[in-house]
Nucleic acid binder design. Sequence first.
RNA 1: GGCGCUUUCGUCUAGCGGCUAGGACACAUGCCUCUCACGCAUGGAACACGGGUUCGAUUCCCGUAGGCGCUACCA
Length: 519
Amino acid sequence: MEDRKVRVRFAPSPTGPLHIGGVRTALYNYLFARQHGGDLIFRIEDTDSTRFVPGAEEYIIEAFHWLGIKFDEGVSFGGEHGPYRQSERRDIYKKYVQQLLDAGKAYIAFDTPEELDAKRKEVENFQYDASTRNMMRNSLTLPSEEVERLISEGNQYVVRFKIEPGEDVHVDDLIRGDVVINSSILDDKVLFKSADQLPTYHLANIVDDHLMEVTHVIRGEEWLPSAPLHVLLYRAFGWEDTMPRFAHLPLLLKPVGNGKLSKRDGDKLGFPVFPLEWHDPKTGEVSSGYRERGYLPQAVCNFLALLGWNPGNDQELMTMDEMIRLFDLSKCSKNGAKFDYVKAAWFNHQYLLQLPDEAWTPEFDKILRTEGIVSTPEKEAEVVRMMKLKVIEYVDGEGNKKKRNVSFVSDLWPLCKFFFVAPSAFDKEDKFIRKNWREATADEMRKFIEVLKTIDDFSVEGQKAVIDPWTEESGIRPWNAWRICLVGAGQGPDMYELAAFLGKEETLSRMQYAIETLG
RNA sequence: GGCGCUUUCGUCUAGCGGCUAGGACACAUGCCUCUCACGCAUGGAACACGGGUUCGAUUCCCGUAGGCGCUACCA
């Protein structure tokens, strides 16, 4: 058992875009598999035919590709244990359901959903289990000829797991330790539906994990209550000796208020809850994605990894390789983590600053194109260089304007517009302009223009050689007013650099315009 | 309601019987400076509550309260 090769899986349902919590679960599985030199399997759990959403499967695959989470086998990746789409494994499940039926560990039930609903209304806290199954219409209460007849007449039925009551079932969880649940509180779970000839999650999950030789099940905490059921299922099949180890991860919670993270929270607070942008095929609704928002995949992985796990020291910035080396299920926290999207932005900021200039350029190029700016690669590279460490963004907070670091390349345009477009209007109420454009300023700028006109070499060095002595001599400190002329506000790079970028002609023309407009 | 999981600064967390309870995000202040930012420095800020166990509990046990999850012919 201990010498089995580590094999883990991520098995989403194709019911929509991949939730960010699912991404974290997949990431942990990936880190775990890599660390142990094992395999990561990608399985599609599409046993609920009514909830299938076209495009979801492709979306999920693309999302992992973007994130850099690689699978070793599974849907679209190949492998020896296929098929990896549960809807294509009907015959396999049927065989195992029959095995349980033959062993008397499961039974056939004919109660319709309507009958069950009625029962639930009639009896408070009704549960289909050892205490009630004798009152229901199933193969335990009906004569076998009657059962045969109902089936042959085409009546729909389900197969239920026959749970023996009164036993303490232990789940040895890698994160939570020994978890005990008494089998009496478990209901006789539906394992198979005749309507679509498909199993439910519980049965398919156990059969597939066994057949695919999965050694560790790392999944969300929402599965913890049904883990004892799964243990019982392994036992019923006689697979207890190769039963995977379980690890139930804490959930991702809303940033504010109570409850688990949902798509609504993202809409309300303005952050994505999906890795990629998603276009709902039914409603046409578009949900934003981390990729489109300007996040770097490494930043997303790094941030997500730390939501529920940490290496036990103060290190927060980690490459994927470092995370693979340091990851440890026993260091995962047990309680749910509120999703801190502000810190997510900080992570992205960190990765953005580390990024070489060339990597910024394609993104930046896109912005310029949408703004209709015609430029040259050299000029763009120059702007990226100047902007990289100097970007800020003013976003609307609740009520007041609030300053924030730029964390996304896509937010850059309002902050670097002046490189390409001359200021056309000046906000006289602006604090910076009020403070730095006084009565004497226009005259000073006129004098400054005369000085600039004498400069032939308009490079940074060339400007300094002339301007520095002049400021010394005249006592005029032109920079802030000059900034108003060229930028229109109190932001931007070093003035000499900016002037050099714009060139002598453009610099002088902007100054002329500002003097005329501001007076 | 029942069952299970969980509880350290506003948030993510370190801590695995004895610590001035550490870090990061956010916030505030200062420094740097031709602006904004970056960077650097400093600061405020937490062991849910009540019982035990112990020489000693943030740490172990039991309650209470709060939070979360499950309770489908969904996963």
